[in-house]
Amino acid sequence: MRTQEGVVRILDTDTGWDEVTALEDTQRAVLNVLDDFGTEKARLESTQQAVLNILDDLNAEKSKLEEASALLKGEIEERRKAAAQLEAVNKELEAFSYSVSHDLRAPLRAIDGFSLALLEDYTGQLDAQGQDFLHRVRAGVQKMGQLIDDMLQLSRLTRGEIHIAPVNLSAVAREIIEEQRRNDPTRRVEFLCADGLGASGDGRLLRAALSNLLNNAWKFTGKQSETRIEFGTTATEDGPAFFIRDNGAGFDMAYAHKLFGAFQRLHRAEEFPGTGIGLAIVHRIIHRHGGRVWAEGAVGKGAVFYFTLPTSATIREETS
């Protein structure tokens, strides 16, 4: 503006046309510069707008992050609560099984003890039938005692820690069969055991699983004249699996889904004794190791039990 005023002042005085032309040129140049400033200003304004937009975006991002973080915090809190609840439930379960172990046994002991006292002290006053009844009372008590023990064993398997180490399954299986031979020396049993079968797992639990499977094989072949029990590995759809095969009583595949349930039995007690807990124990042990167990069989044609165990130690932790 000051330049323009200067120009006008010059025009007011007695200046010549040449000077006017020069001044006009100057004025145009100045206007051009002003124009350029305007463009520059607009550019700056749009840059400013862009920066403001970015800041807006950042703010939106930030509040999203804050929301997510609050959500996570909530989830962590919920999980902490769930873990505390689980621990409380475990404690309660422990107290419950303690009470089962202690309190359920006491009345059984009384029933058995006084039945025995009657048998011993009043034999003369009881005829054969009376004595038979008392023997039946005592047998019932033993059965119930066994059921309580089995239930406790099953519940203990889901508590308790597992200690992972290499386990020589072949050696364990041979020991179990040797023990059966000592307990039951009249049986003729051929045991075919593959060498060097191993897995990584809890030695105590895997022994319990093998012992239930092999003792079942031993039990359900009891009516065969020639018993054959096999322990080995085979390829299955699930990859390599261990198997225990016997030529015993077998089972109807229609009931295969019931085999691994607690207290499920597919045979009458007079045929083959048992409480129906063994395979439930096997199932729980294999499951805790992250493996799978299943069975194939046919009535009178024997049974095959398959199980997988992880090669590395991917063990399910079910306890707190």
């Binding site: 303690y98 172990s101 046994r105 002991r109 025995l116 033993q142 119930m144 005692g145 406790l152």
Partner: peptide
């Protein structure tokens, strides 16, 4: 009557001389 391991270990930790589980079978007891 308890078969709980914690009872057994606590009893021995407190210097019990012996620990007998009352069996259900009274003849054994």
């Amino acid at each position: 009557s308890s078969k709980e391991e914690s009872d057994l270990s606590q009893s021995y930790a407190l210097h019990a001389n012996s620990y007998i589980r009352k069996p259900v079978d009274f003849a054994q007891f």
